[in-house]
């Protein structure tokens, strides 16, 4: 798992061309590459990695909160990165029109990343520390557990790299 999270710098350089490019180019890279690039961009930050799909009710509930923490903790070196698992990208895009996201979305229509991270439920999230290690994992999203989720983020943000 480490090799994926701790991305070598050259990969960043290699694919930085694609990041600013249009959708056409985006689809030509694999979901794994897209994630590696995005993680590399946020190296040294605390990352909340979220797996979601348009058909999942609790996922929809988690979006306002993810937008909120993205805005709240961004300045402290934090980012939400989400991975969409819809088999049909058009459905994900429709979802994002209804429920806009202020954080990066990576498309993984074949579920390769989900399989790699052994996702157990929808949504699923992983909290990655500044050192690139996965510190916490959550299956599902429960509004009454928001204080716990935020406590974990604050704990990791407080850690010195």
């Amino acid at each position: 798992m480490h090799y994926l999270v701790r991305t070598p710098l050259f990969l960043v350089l290699l694919f930085s061309l694609f990041i600013s490019s249009d959708m056409q180019a985006e689809t030509t890279i694999t979901s794994r590459q897209a994630l590696e690039q995005t993680l590399a961009q946020h190296k040294g930050k605390v990352v909340y990695l979220d797996f979601w799909a348009s058909w999942c009710g609790p996922c929809r509930k988690s979006f306002p909160w993810m937008n909120k923490i993205q805005a709240e903790y961004k300045s402290q070196g934090f980012s939400v990165i989400s991975i969409n698992l819809d088999a049909n990208r058009a459905l994900a895009e429709k979802f994002l029109v209804e429920t806009p996201a202020v954080f990066p979305v990576i498309y993984d229509p074949k579920g390769k990343l989900a399989k790699h991270f052994k996702i157990k439920g929808m949504p699923s999230s992983m909290l990655i520390g500044r050192d690139g290690e996965i510190k916490f994992r959550h299956a599902g999203f429960f509004i009454n557990r928001i204080p716990q989720y935020q406590q974990e983020i604050e704990l990791l943000l407080a850690e010195i790299k």
């Binding site: 797996f51 799909a53 348009s54 058909w55 999942c56 698992l85 819809d86 088999a87 049909n88 459905l91 579920g111 989900a114 399989k115 996702i119 157990k120 439920g121 929808m122 699923s124």
Partner: peptide
């Protein structure tokens, strides 16, 4: 797999 439940959902 958990992410393949689009139709079942």
């Amino acid at each position: 797999e958990p992410w393949e439940r689009d139709l079942l959902a």
